[in-house]
Computed example of a mutant assay.
Amino acid sequence: MPMNDSVIVTCALTGAGDTVGRSPHVPVTPQQIAASAVEAAEAGAAVVHIHVRDPETGDPSRDPKLYREVVERIKETGTDVVINLTAGMGGDLVLDADQPLEKGAQPGTDLVGGLDRLPHVEDLLPDICTLDCGSLNFGDNLYISTPEMLRKGAKRIQELGVRPELEIFDTGQLWFAKQLQSEGLLDDPSVFQLCMGIPWGAPADPGVLQSMVNFLPEGAQWASFALGRMQMPWVAQSILLGGNVRVGLEDNLYLSKGVKATNGQLTERAVQITESLGASVATPDEARVRLGLKPRA
């Protein structure tokens, strides 16, 4: 696959990880998340990927009111950026290792059905929402997304006219995403995010990325990212293999060793890498065309 010469940059602003106490730059409140989205857009991001957090505790949240406030605050600024809302919250299952059935779900569990992960998407109809395409040993716990949950979620997202970004954490999930496509539950162009280096999914290895790219369906739009210090090398890896890129504080807190980053700084660095490879950075309107999105309202 030839190098991508027009790169869509996504900035993942805050995520759901336990990062708030590790960097003062991780946005928590709707006001902070929206301001960080604007900062990233001004630095060159065509897309912002949005989680929300409890403003009091910093814990991850599924509250539709928080999503609405973030999106409204971004739109009030007049900033042109593609809105990508996570729909991956609600899949966490924590079990006792010795007595999983006897003790049942443990503190930290937030497990709901596929449709119950979508009320904020139904409310706001963003340009894009994510669809995490399978269950995974996600660090020390489980992320649950069964085939039937995914079928129901994909069908509802399709009915809403929102573009799903298919989050792929391992090769079997890519296989199942292609199954969803064969069942008519995904519209063209299919949009993939290849998520590398998350314990214990696909490792951040160039050979693994190459094999996953080779397995993508024809005509797919795709991006890839890797965690931590591999974030910026993965910008180059993705572009060289023909893909788009994702950076941001969801996946990495540092600009360089010991230097805490902002979302704007991470986006600027991704833009620099892109341009140094001889590629251009896609505008939001260019991203909308390539991803099959509606024109900006």
Rank of each mutant, 00 (worst) to 15 (best):
residue 10 T to L: 06
residue 10 T to N: 09
residue 10 T to Q: 12
residue 10 T to E: 11
residue 10 T to M: 13
residue 10 T to I: 07
residue 11 C to I: 03
residue 11 C to Y: 03
residue 11 C to W: 06
residue 11 C to D: 11
residue 11 C to F: 02
residue 11 C to N: 11
residue 12 A to M: 12
residue 13 L to W: 04
residue 13 L to A: 01
residue 13 L to F: 04
residue 14 T to K: 06
residue 14 T to V: 03
residue 15 G to Q: 07
residue 15 G to E: 07
residue 16 A to Y: 08
residue 16 A to T: 04
residue 18 D to T: 14
residue 18 D to Y: 12
residue 19 T to Q: 13
residue 19 T to L: 15
residue 20 V to Q: 12
residue 20 V to W: 10
residue 20 V to T: 15
residue 20 V to L: 06
residue 21 G to T: 05
residue 21 G to P: 07
residue 22 R to N: 11
residue 23 S to G: 08
residue 24 P to C: 02
residue 24 P to E: 00
residue 24 P to W: 07
residue 25 H to E: 13
residue 25 H to W: 09
residue 25 H to G: 04
residue 25 H to R: 13
residue 26 V to R: 09
residue 26 V to M: 08
residue 26 V to Y: 14
residue 27 P to A: 12
residue 29 T to D: 00
residue 30 P to N: 01
residue 30 P to F: 12
residue 30 P to Y: 14
residue 32 Q to T: 00
residue 32 Q to P: 00
residue 33 I to K: 07
residue 33 I to M: 02
residue 34 A to P: 03
residue 34 A to V: 03
residue 36 S to N: 12
residue 38 V to T: 10
residue 39 E to N: 08
residue 39 E to R: 10
residue 40 A to E: 03
residue 42 E to S: 10
residue 42 E to N: 14
residue 42 E to P: 03
residue 42 E to L: 14
residue 44 G to P: 12
residue 44 G to L: 12
residue 45 A to K: 15
residue 46 A to W: 13
residue 46 A to Y: 12
residue 46 A to N: 13
residue 47 V to S: 09
residue 47 V to H: 11
residue 47 V to T: 15
residue 48 V to M: 07
residue 48 V to C: 09
residue 51 H to C: 02
residue 51 H to N: 08
residue 53 R to E: 00
residue 54 D to M: 05
residue 54 D to T: 02
residue 54 D to E: 09
residue 54 D to S: 06
residue 54 D to G: 01
residue 56 E to W: 11
residue 56 E to N: 15
residue 56 E to P: 00
residue 58 G to L: 01
residue 58 G to V: 00
residue 58 G to E: 02
residue 59 D to L: 15
residue 60 P to D: 07
residue 60 P to W: 08
residue 61 S to N: 08
residue 61 S to E: 07
residue 62 R to M: 15
residue 62 R to S: 14
residue 62 R to K: 09
residue 63 D to F: 08
residue 63 D to R: 12
residue 63 D to G: 09
residue 65 K to Q: 15
residue 65 K to I: 09
residue 65 K to G: 13
residue 66 L to V: 01
residue 67 Y to T: 01
residue 67 Y to C: 03
residue 68 R to Q: 13
residue 68 R to I: 01
residue 68 R to Y: 06
residue 68 R to T: 12
residue 69 E to V: 01
residue 69 E to K: 09
residue 69 E to M: 04
residue 70 V to I: 01
residue 70 V to Q: 02
residue 71 V to T: 10
residue 71 V to D: 05
residue 72 E to I: 01
residue 73 R to Q: 11
residue 73 R to E: 04
residue 73 R to N: 03
residue 75 K to V: 06
residue 75 K to I: 02
residue 75 K to Q: 14
residue 75 K to A: 11
residue 76 E to A: 14
residue 77 T to R: 08
residue 77 T to H: 00
residue 77 T to P: 00
residue 78 G to Q: 02
residue 78 G to S: 01
